[in-house]
Write a protein that binds this DNA or RNA. Structure first.
Lengths: 348, 348
DNA sequence: AACGTGACAGCAAGCGCTTTCTATGTAGAC
DNA sequence: GTCTACATAGAAAGCGCTTGCTGTCACGTT
């Protein structure tokens, strides 16, 4: 029924071993023989059996990419960059690798399960993107799992995640704290003193770090934070909309709203508009990430640009062993403040 | 070194066959035995060898998802929906499947190569999303490949792609033509007579169908189209920006600009703003897809909503054999006109 | 009391490939 | 002209799992 190596071998009048060697190109084969084999492969329309070769060679060409939400461009951009570097078709980088993009939906269990599935497939590498969940038992479980993967020869890279030294993983971390601080300092510099903050889900490292940066900026400028000024929500537009209304309700005198990310900021803008407030005249708004659509908001969003594509590409190369990991296995990737129309001086 | 089935068997004092059966649960095993086995699995921290079992069972639990650009929410949303239905962890649907998201970047060669890679992995199913490339040789090659996959037992589903009867694939097609027509008729109804159109890349079915719908609307209302009114570009913001400037240069009297999709429309809006034109007072703008950010444009974008998540979910279920394919193997999915602030009556 | 009948469990034969080790032929070395 | 060395090709032993077929009991039948 299906064509096997042996069929090709028979047709090319060589042994299966030779065919395998031609296909893998890691052993000297006479040019004439190689040609004959290739011809047979072509004529029979032979397709290698992936599982069989993975079993025999004890390696696979699968690379796992874990993301929280593939529908979110934040992850989409990273995934795309990673994939372009792991040498899938087109991204010339040696053997053809298949990227397995796993959508965890931010769920701890799924994260773990996907890792097991990848372990089962004997993945060549795994890249975890985005913030981690801050729950001690879960973190321990993750670290143990990652360690096991690493020990089994799977290269593990974290992209936009805090380092996990226990797990023996390379980490490219985003400087969320620094970015958050810089952003809020920009607003303070404009004269804002009453700033609302729409944070992400409580248990995520990204949420915490950005918030810490914000608070550090406030503290550095002697601004005492009112607990009413912080609202937690999800990383989506809806959440930003609702949180903004809530902030306005709690303290209508706020002159700026800092959002956990751009998507949330967009929701915040909508809420302000719907409340009849003008941006930035009445309230300034700031986001985080600088996703492509942020520049198209009206007014364009002041935000912190994260080099998602660059970081993803680098993570991909490291995962493939095509780039030296950073010294110590950890590198911090900085964001860049993008000042645009959504932030301005508060009204006197 | 690594734990194998045999190790588990030894520890549980049973044969490897029994362990396999416990793990696969497709053969009667006494409860007490099962328990003993499970305990051993747990104690040894055993992880099944995916390639080995795929080889032995001649099936795998990989499902391929082909997308043009994973960084584009249009595809991200579909991919996410598909994945949630194929029964990856969390999306309870029986066995745990791994979604392999392949980023073709719109390249014909990569599309084909990924299909080969998936074929090599003996994927359980493959879902192709988004428009197809209109090139006869390539289409023939694709159809042949899909046919081969289907014949080998891989379920092939097209989501948002034109049907490919030759290939024996189930198709969920978007009614791009109908949507395009309805959209342009809306603009005509508002009084527009000079409408610019920013089309996507020439060789894509999506591009052609949407453009055909637009032209059908014009024709139906006796509007003769000026060739200067159509510009082709890529499906991105930049392209929309440049194309709009070009359209304006060619005919400054245009009162409406219809874009190939929302992302392009966003670029168009930016170009109009930068040209000092007001939307919709001077020029109306319309997009297509209704991606999440479209409602946040200012003014909010008039567009055609495509039920991406619903279609993706359905495609996923069909790919898993959990939903009856549509009669004839083809279903057309309609879009819904969303009239918002970016379209209005032209100035007298 | 002899005998079918389930319900489990084990044996063993692969699944299709890789790779080590061995065989062979040829070319250069002396 | 014989010997060593190198370049290739083949034989065969797995890789770790699934599954058809063959036992083996413990029962319920007649």
């Amino acid at each position: 029924m299906t064509v096997t190596l042996a069929d090709v071998a028979a047709r090319a009048q060589v042994s299966p071993a030779t065919v395998s060697r031609v296909l893998n190109g890691n052993y000297p084969v006479a040019a004439s023989t190689r040609e004959r084999v290739l011809k047979a492969v072509d004529e029979l329309d032979y397709v290698l059996n992936g599982p069989a070769s993975a079993l025999a060679a004890a390696t696979s060409d699968l690379v796992g990419i874990l993301v929280n939400d593939i529908a979110d461009p934040f992850f989409g951009i990273m995934a795309s960059a990673i994939q372009s570097e792991i040498g899938g078709p087109g991204g010339r980088a040696g053997g053809e690798r298949l990227a397995v993009v796993c959508n965890t939906g931010g769920s701890p269990e799924r994260e773990l399960t996907y890792l097991t599935l990848l372990q089962r497939q004997r993945a060549a590498a795994v890249v975890l993107t985005g913030g981690a969940i801050e729950d001690a038992p879960h973190k321990a479980a993750m670290d143990a799992k990652l360690r096991k993967l690493a020990d089994a020869g799977t290269r593990v890279v974290l992209c936009g995640r805090p380092p996990a030294p226990e797990a023996g993983a390379i980490a490219l971390t985003f400087d969320n704290r620094g970015g958050g601080r810089e952003l809020t300092e920009h607003l303070i510099g404009l004269g804002h003193r009453r700033l609302g903050y729409i944070a992400g889900p409580e248990e995520r490292t990204t949420t915490r770090h950005r918030l810490e940066g914000h608070r550090a900026a406030l503290a550095a400028h002697g601004i005492e934070e009112d607990p009413r000024w912080t609202v937690h929500g999800r990383y989506d537009r809806r959440s930003g909309y609702e949180a903004t209304l809530e902030l306005l309700r709690r303290d209508p005198s706020l002159t700026a709203v800092v959002a956990a990310n751009d998507t949330v900021a967009l929701g915040a803008c909508a809420a302000l508009r719907d409340s009849g407030l003008s941006i930035p005249r009445d309230v300034s708004v700031a986001g985080f990430d600088d996703l492509p659509f942020s520049i198209d908001a009206v007014p364009a969003l002041t935000t912190v640009r994260l080099p998602l594509a660059e970081a993803g590409a680098r993570a991909g190369r490291i995962a493939m062993g095509r780039e030296e990991p950073p010294p110590g296995g950890v590198a911090s990737v900085r964001g860049e403040l993008m000042v645009r129309g959504s932030s301005g001086a508060p009204r006197a």
